[in-house]
């Protein structure tokens, strides 16, 4: 892959890759770090990348590996900052799909609920959490997730199913 194509990937997929990194790390500083390292690692590996073969999945797989390495290295990034605080820090109204149609009271409730969902997701192990984030945060199809994680699509479906089941259980227990 040529540098120009890689730069195009920053433009094309940067937002969803950043969003995914944000879910993995839980705070802006680490997200910036991981996001940047992901693309710089891609520079090293660019001769192995093919623009026609789902480079987004490849980039996400790099982010996953780097994050795993960092966690191993420093036992690092375990300071899970409450995501509601982070989302608030990024500016009110950034969750536009909810904010635009909710009353202020609903928005507060929604924020609590979102925080609960995010906490529940955070508690899942990587096997279930990664497919969940790839699906809902990075907006990847099952096949693409399979490619990013190097596992069969059937396994992705099964893990998503299990993750949803556990999330449902957690939310039904925790919901007021």
């Amino acid at each position: 892959m040529e540098p120009d194509e890689l730069i195009e990937l920053v433009r094309q997929h940067g937002k969803s890759i950043y969003a995914f990194c944000y879910r993995l790390t839980g705070n802006k500083a680490d997200t910036d770090d991981l996001y940047q390292e992901t693309f710089l690692k891609a520079v090293e590996l660019r001769h192995k990348m093919d623009a026609s073969r789902n480079p987004k999945a490849y980039l996400l797989s790099i982010a996953i590996r780097l994050n795993r390495n960092h966690r191993r290295k420093f036992a690092w990034r375990q300071r899970i900052v409450p995501t509601s605080e982070l989302d608030a820090a990024t500016g009110a109204g950034t969750f536009d799909s909810l904010a635009s149609e909710a009353t202020p009271e609903d928005a507060v409730l929604s924020l609590e609920l979102r925080s609960m969902v995010q906490d529940a997701a955070n508690r899942l192990g990587d096997k279930l959490k990664l497919p969940l984030y790839l699906y809902y945060t990075a907006d990847m199809a099952v096949e693409e997730i399979a490619s990013a994680l190097g596992i069969p699509a059937g396994t992705v479906k099964s893990r998503l199913h299990t993750a949803r089941k556990l999330m449902r259980q957690a939310l039904e227990v925790e919901s007021p």
């Binding site: 950043y18 969003a19 802006k28 989302d87 536009d96 969902v117 969940l132 809902y136 999330m167």
Partner: peptide, 11 residues
């Protein structure tokens, strides 16, 4: 799940 796990964080 879609609404909660989507992230508004952007580079």
């Amino acid at each position: 799940l879609r609404q909660s796990l989507a992230s508004a964080a952007e580079p």
